[in-house]
Amino acid sequence: MAETVVLQITRYSPERDAEPQFESFEVPFHKEWVVLDALNYIKDRIDGSLSYRWSCRMGICGSCGMMVNGEPKLTCATFLSSYAAKRKPIVVEPLRYFPVIRDLVTEMTDFMVKLRKVKPWLIRKEPPPAQGEFLQTPEQLDVYKQFSMCINCTLCYAACPVYGLDPVFVGPAAIALAQRYNLDSRDQGADDRLSILAHPEGVWGCTFVGECTRVCPKHVDPAGAIQQYKLVTALEWFKSYLWPRGTGKNSEASGAD
């Protein structure tokens, strides 16, 4: 008989269960299989009622984030072979700190609302170029490119104890994406984002645990984005004392205290 591996998966049905329970499934072990392949095998062959999100299976869509052995992971990029050597069941749970809708499916509205709040789009105060497109040098692109790699998978929220303990915290991905636009040479909306970001529940909520950066599958470094923005708001706050009537920009930076 072929080698197998056991997956211990969170099951939760709002109609049936008061709280989630684990169910074990035995699946064939192939060294080229990722955890998502094992979940698809279970859904196709063993129990069609297993619910989870997935789409691209190549680390782009950001839908298949789950806790694998307690670590936030994209299941499409997490190989069974990394865990099989331990001969213990692989534990698959829904992403931590989010409400659970069913089995491995989490409720993401909170993140979506926060993402919208930081206005992650290009804001222009002046009209765009009359002819042609915006021009940007490779250096100007390099300034924000790292933060633009975010795929909204919310693994960083599942890694962030601050978000778990204080759910009003804007959180790593939303702040990193705000920085992505703040640092973009085409954007002129840094002032509009300041009141959300410089708020105590914005960057100042972060205690620099650094786990968001460690678990990020796209190497976005949200913790870095937050600390860099803390420096910006602290300087703006300081400037607001030097020029109390405002310098014409960023005059509402009072959240740094």
Binding site: P14, P99, V100, R102, E107, P161, L165, G210, E211
Partner: peptide
């Protein structure tokens, strides 16, 4: 019990007081 006004009842996990024990990166923090 299974439904609220607009959607099925979600399970909201509680964060343990001892969340920082058991995982080295959290303990280090």
């Amino acid at each position: 019990k299974a439904y609220t006004l607009y959607h099925p009842r979600w399970f909201r996990p509680r964060v343990s007081t001892y969340w920082w024990l058991g995982r080295w990166p959290y303990l280090k923090f």
